[in-house]
Design a protein around this nucleic acid. Structure first.
Lengths: 128, 128
DNA sequence: TTAACTGTATTATTAATAATAGTACAGTTG
DNA sequence: CAACTGTACTATTATTAATAATACAGTTAA
């Protein structure tokens, strides 16, 4: 379900929250869908349960999931399919990066070419 | 000369190397120009000298600067003005980010708008 | 020549924090 | 009741950036 880089500088729990957020925002995890239990995921990823719990706690704090003691953790309906947040995020990053690109003399046509490349890339691997 | 975020997760020495690399690649630091001495910069940034030294050592290892015991540390002529490396780097990042943008439904015209915004931005703050 | 700079090297210590380990408690479900 | 769930807490380990404290040698200018 996930790939983690245990020797990354990014903490494991943070890698986890980000991946799960993406799955939710992209709608891959659906509303009220149950997430793996803390202990199950811990075993799957061979990571300490406390690390998983920390990720889940953070996700709940941010409203991405809700947890019911004794039942499990589930995707929060409010967030599902909300690409808006992700879009804004990507937009900001793009703006920052393009400012640099401008500095380095990138032209608009170069940018267009890059965008086309990115489009083709997606076309190949997606949509079976 | 620099702004550091001492509470960033990015190590200080790494923030330093990156900033200096940029100054060199953008040609702001010229060939054979002398960098601040380890101790001077250490005092200016209120950072331990060893941290500065670590950054300088890394920069020398990567060929950005050369150091002469007793004299100082200087910009390596080979690297000055070499935007090629930086361009390639930014290009890669852009491609990766645009792939995500495509996923999120960004259109080419949206991208163009972003590029224009970035261009204007630069125009304002640069070139007096 | 000497004082005050330079870079370089080394060792030890501190600080911060992610991750682990272990245990406990309570709700849910079959 | 047994086996799951989430939650909470404390303690410990491991990693690593940063600091501290010296020491040595080359350069330079007064």
């Amino acid at each position: 379900m996930f790939e983690l880089d245990v020797r990354s500088r990014r903490p494991i729990y943070e890698q986890l929250t980000d991946k799960i957020k993406e799955l939710i925002l992209y709608g891959i995890l659906r509303s009220d869908e149950q997430l793996p239990s803390v202990r199950t995921l811990s075993a799957q990823l061979t990571v300490n349960p406390n690390t998983i719990q920390k990720a889940y706690r953070e996700l709940e704090r941010e409203g991405y999931i809700y947890s019911r003691p004794g039942k499990g953790s589930f995707v929060s309906p409010a967030q599902q399919g909300t690409n808006a947040a992700k879009r804004a995020e990507v937009r900001d990053e793009l703006l920052r990066l393009m400012a640099e690109a401008v500095y380095l003399g990138f032209t608009e046509s170069e940018i267009s070419v890059l965008f086309k490349q990115a489009s083709e890339q997606k076309g190949e691997e997606d949509q079976p």
